[in-house]
Structure formats: C-alpha cells, structure tokens
Design a protein around this nucleic acid. Structure first.
Lengths: 137, 137
DNA sequence: CACCTGTTATACAAATCATATAACAGGTGG
DNA sequence: CCACCTGTTATATGATTTGTATAACAGGTG
C-alpha cells in the first residue's frame, strides 16, 4: 500500500488531504485500476484518524469517479472518467492557479516547464511498471 | 471598476471567490499596479455582502502581496512578488490539478494546450492596453 | 454464524464562515 | 477643528463544516 502522510497543522482538511494524496497516487500509478484501498477502519487506524474522516474522503472520491465500491472487497480504484465530463472543474482550478502564476510573473513558458516537471515526476514512480505514458524521452 | 460576481450557491467561500476574482483581474490586467480597489464598505454594498467578508479577502490579498494598504486611499493593487517566494504554493496547487488531469486521461500536450488557452484569455482583455505579454501570434 | 466490507444515525466539541453593531486610528479637505 | 473617508479591531450571534465518538445496520464471504 502507498504511503499516506497527513499534515495535521495544515489548514487543508484531513479528508481533503487524503483525497489529494490518493488522486496523486493514481496519477503516479502507485494505485492502479482495480486495486483495493484499505478499509475505512484500517486506513483510519494506520493514519491515526477517525473512521468517518476516511469515509468522507472515500465518499468524495466515489462521487468524483476515482473509486467504486464493491460490497465484498471495499473501495476499489476505478478510473473510467472521460475527459469532457471533468474538464470544467479542471479548467476552473487551472484558471485560478494560472492567474496567480501570471501575477507572480511566471511566463507561459515557465508554466509549461513546471507542467513538464510535474508530469515527469508522476511518471517516475511509474518507470518500471510497463504502463504507457505520454512522456518524451 | 471590474465586475465581481459571487456564486452564493457555490461551496467555495465568498471571501475566497472574491480573492480569486481579484487575482484573475490582475492577471487579465483589468486591475493594474497602483489601482485603488473599492473600499471594504463600498465593495460590500455593491456585492451585497458583509463588510467583514470583504475585509477578510483584502487581508488575505495583503498577506499574499497582491495589494498594499495606503491609509489615505485604501487598498491599492501592488504586484511586486518575486517568482521564487510564491513558487512553492503554486507548485503544490499545480500538482493537485495535474494529478486530477492525468487521472482524467489528459496528456501532457492536452495540459499545454489548456495552459495556452487560459493564458491567451488573460491577455485578451489586455489587447488594447499596450501591456507586453508572452503570447505567440 | 462469525467476520469482513461500506453506510447510517446520533451526538458532541471545535473551527470556520458570514453577518451585525460598534468603536478606534489615521489621513483628507472644507 | 471638524466632518468624512479609509482600514482595522472588538464582540456577539447563528449556520455550517470538520473531526471525533459510539453504535447499529445491510450485504457479501467463508
């Protein structure tokens, strides 16, 4: 199972951090389609938080289509989302980030480099798994 | 003054929406360095929200270096932020957005196109102002 | 039938969000 | 000096969110 690390001093909600880390885990192929996440009780015990906080994270992930629930197994990674459906949300979020970036005098090229850097870091952990990526070199 | 539009049914906090729209206004050069924002009381009345909600937004913008306060004039747009100081936050936010994008099967090239599209939209309103941009064509 | 899943119902404390009324400190202009 | 404008602060209140806690329920497995 992948490492989950929660920053309890962060202003970001615990369930939100958990969601983000799982999504990033999927992006890095540390979590692959069909993989079973730890049960809400197990995950809660591992991290040292309440069961309901984990459940809330799973519920959000389910609503956003990152996991599906199999009653016999539990929460299963399931990435069958199409581009178009989620694009609106991504566009909104991206717009906010880019507005800040532009105010900080980051050029379009700077952002491209940052995107490449992060996408590369996603694929790094993915190197030996045989998964195909969109990466150059 | 630029248009501010609040979505009261949104799950995003009002002061947060206000911050984002002002930052996007700066990114689009609808708000330029030295420009005076409406007073907290005026802005609150215009939008139909409480003075303190506006004040909270201004306080956040001040802490993040987007405005400075001139006691005689009020909140003044002031973008003197260096790249490096704010880069960590941008990198974190960008990483979260890109993780979701990659899970939605957006390729690196797709993201580049999205970035170009948004950056272009920033510069559009900026077209007749003589401000130099990083845009191609 | 025990045992594992997610899920739901309550309840509770703490924090956040938005509102409201009121006052204070500093700068401007009549 | 005095109204008048700024941001700012102090309190208070109500709604919502967050996280925790105990407990129970429904469905699938062995």
């Amino acid at each position: 199972m992948m490492y989950i690390e929660i920053d309890f001093s962060s202003d970001e909600a615990i369930y939100q951090q958990l969601c983000n880390q799982i999504i990033q885990g999927i992006a890095m192929s540390r979590l692959v389609d069909g993989e079973v996440l730890p049960s809400v009780r197990q995950m809660a015990e591992d991290i040292g938080i309440n069961m309901h906080t984990v459940n809330k994270a799973y519920t959000v992930l389910k609503q956003e289509g990152f996991v599906k629930v199999d009653r016999r197994r539990g929460a299963v990674v399931s990435v069958h989302a199409d581009k178009e459906k989620a694009l609106d949300q991504i566009r909104r979020d991206m717009r906010a980030v880019l507005a800040e970036a532009r105010c900080r005098n980051l050029s379009r090229e700077d952002v491209h480099r940052l995107v490449d850097e992060i996408y590369a870091s996603f694929a790094e952990a993915d190197a030996g798994t045989g998964t195909d990526t969109d990466l150059p070199g």
